[in-house]
Nucleic acid binder design. Structure first.
Lengths: 139, 139
DNA sequence: TTATTAGTCTATCTTTTTTATAGGTTTTAT
DNA sequence: ATAAAACCTATAAAAAAGATAGACTAATAA
């Protein structure tokens, strides 16, 4: 399961995407709209900003905004940033690989192979679907 | 990521599957072979037994054994038992569903839809692949 | 230039989950 | 009887997740 952090991030990003035309959006507005603790959300948005996904403006009229159009922000990127590996096992992770301590040889480990396939099938979706694809469907 | 518990369970099950002909297998043997803390493994095997996946025999000559042939034990079942939901979000989980607290209407939530697809693609593999499919490939 | 607004930063705290261990109990083969 | 091996329950230790606090900095407007 994705952590609350990542879930909150997605909802916040959706809100920002659905309001791109309105200039910088307040943390407090997002927090209220999406029912998220404002202080917790603050940390999350900062992290997204430091990763170059969001930009911000301080002072009156300030807030957060997307650095790129929604269709260029892949879901996989957000998950990896805030949650870490997408793979179910460290030994099949592309970005967070760790050697398996419990098997003799990954090359002939059947678990490794099957979990690699699960990873591929998830990535096929998560690398290609973007913020644009998770906006509210009526909008 | 799957918990250590689930990872250990898979490795233990593989060992049992690869030794079906040898009668009950000792916890200690599995622990040593797969490099798992024996006491931790004990708990895991018990849980698998209580779920009807393993059987056991006490006393001398005792140990654990599979209750069904490896090809009838789906990977999804093991994961759900020891790790809980396979879905990335509670609101798209088939077995552990929880309402989303952050969106107004799941029916039009794009995140819900995409994550539902990720779940389906993972389940397509994990429901159909079994213990038999994760045995060491040379065997 | 000062007050206000709003993000920045870092630290800490609480709770939950995960991982692991301990030690006695029961069953069974010999 | 005794030794082997699973059973059971509790607890402890460590790590991660979730949440909060408060002082700091930058931008804007009066």
């Amino acid at each position: 399961m994705l952590s609350k952090k990542t879930q909150y991030a997605f909802h916040a990003l959706v809100h920002l995407a659905e309001n791109v035309d309105k200039g910088p959006i307040l943390i407090s507005e997002i927090a209220q709209e999406k029912n998220i603790s404002i202080k917790f959300l603050e940390n999350i948005l900062l992290e997204l900003k430091n990763a170059g996904i969001l930009g911000s403006k301080k002072g009156k009229g300030g807030g957060y905004y997307l650095m790129r159009p929604p269709k260029e922000i892949a879901l996989a990127k957000i998950i990896r940033l805030l949650d870490g590996p997408i793979a179910l096992l460290p030994c099949v992770s592309l970005n967070y690989y760790e050697r398996c301590e419990n098997c003799r040889d990954e090359a002939v480990c059947g678990l490794n192979e099957v979990m690699g396939r699960v990873r591929d099938s998830a990535l096929k979706i998560l690398e290609n679907k973007t913020l644009k694809d998770i906006l509210t469907r009526s909008a």
